[in-house]
Design a protein around this nucleic acid. Structure first.
Lengths: 222, 222
DNA sequence: ATAATATCAGAACAAGTGTTCCGTGTCAAG
DNA sequence: CTTGACACGGAACACTTGTTCTGATATTAT
């Protein structure tokens, strides 16, 4: 609460605890903390742990081994988002069924500070290069939230009824006309009638994984 | 491995362990499991825990209190990547210092299945629209791994000595010439001499957060 | 039926673990 | 200088906790 400055020792302990939990998925003991932070006495570790708890950085469970919880990590709780398919420009977005089957290989894990609570959300893999005007490559993943309305300025998945295609553009309703603004600033917006578009969802996050995807002609350099 | 069917008791234990961890963020002890699952003997809990480990549902740390890890969660272990600054086209990438200080507001949490172990990695926020040829917007986040060498086909941060600018391009070494391929397929590659480039790191992940960023001229719709 | 295996219960042990007490040194305020 | 708050180190204590041993009961195979 007081949010005063942490001592170097306390900061050292906090980073160790954080790393330890992320590596082992269970918290360290007092003696493990002391050994890692070069503190010989368990009472000193206990003393500084109480300081950290007073400042709100951690929570402690009395008399419980490894009973340390990171206060800040509540914001980084995991959400599991199902990967339900692919998105083509030539098709409407295929929404998943209500039942969320548990398929670990087709699940994308993200933290809540990036995408929120993950309700009604799903992931799509982008196929084709028709999303270039939205600055989206083939192979990118789009995290979407299914909803029929979006606010002005949201990046939305929109089904264009006339031309029968799905596009991702920033949505603006202006004077009874819908302005669809490409994410690429070098491209122009298009104006359409609201009755010719159907909002399918709102894009929450886009990410692109680089590693080991373009494994072509690998020649190590000097 | 064998993936046989779990007994009711083992299934009961597994659900309790899962719920306990999600509630307390640390695993339960053997006796806590026994009490919750109506098992009076610690040896029986220990016996079934070994069964669960043989089937791959959990991992156990020998002689460690609360040393239980959920097998499924190993792929979604968290890595904390420090957000160390911004990346301009007109400057070399500013690398962080060796010491990783604990600054909670400037940390990006991702899962290991997306970015790997997170060693020597850091996050940069993209400023300016000069990365458009890499299909990267202003405001995007780039997760980079600091390394002086990359393999052919890696997306690399490259400092061009002559023109004094940083660029993100796919790297290919071909016949003593370096081919720098833009991510945007509509743009052409450039060929430069290896002595005129300096590899600063490899791009592991790019992501773009949409929510509440472009709050410009918001006019609510019907 | 008989043997073999799997599952279980109780108890005991050694090590792990949080807590507490006492003493020391530092440093700024009085 | 004295005082008090603060941080630290060492030690001891009591409880926790994983492990192991012995034996009993249930299930399955031969």
């Amino acid at each position: 609460m007081a949010q005063t400055k942490l001592s170097v020792r306390q900061e050292d302990m906090l980073t160790f605890i954080t790393n330890f939990i992320s590596q082992n998925s269970y918290p360290p003991t007092i003696r493990e903390i002391g050994k890692a932070c070069h503190i010989t006495s368990t009472s000193v570790v206990n003393y500084n742990l109480n300081k950290l708890e007073e400042e709100g950085y951690i929570s402690r469970m009395l008399r419980v081994s490894r009973g340390i919880q990171l206060g800040k990590n509540q914001a980084s709780a995991l959400v599991q988002i199902p990967l339900v398919g692919r998105i083509f420009a030539s098709e409407p977005v295929s929404f998943p069924e209500a039942s969320v089957s548990y398929a670990p290989d087709e699940t994308i894990n993200l933290t809540q500070d990036l995408v929120g609570d993950g309700k009604k959300m799903f992931a799509l893999e982008v196929r084709g290069d028709s999303m270039i005007d939205a600055m989206i490559n083939e192979g990118d993943y789009v995290i979407m939230k299914q909803q029929a309305r979006v606010n002005n300025g949201d990046l939305a998945a929109i089904w264009l009824i006339d031309s029968e295609e799905t596009t991702l553009k920033y949505f603006y309703l202006e004077n009874d006309k819908v302005r669809l603004q490409p994410a690429n600033p070098t491209m122009d917006a298009i104006y359409v009638d609201p009755s010719t578009v159907r909002i399918q969802g709102k894009v929450m996050l886009i990410f692109r994984q680089i590693s080991a995807r373009k494994t072509v002609s690998v020649i190590p350099n000097n």
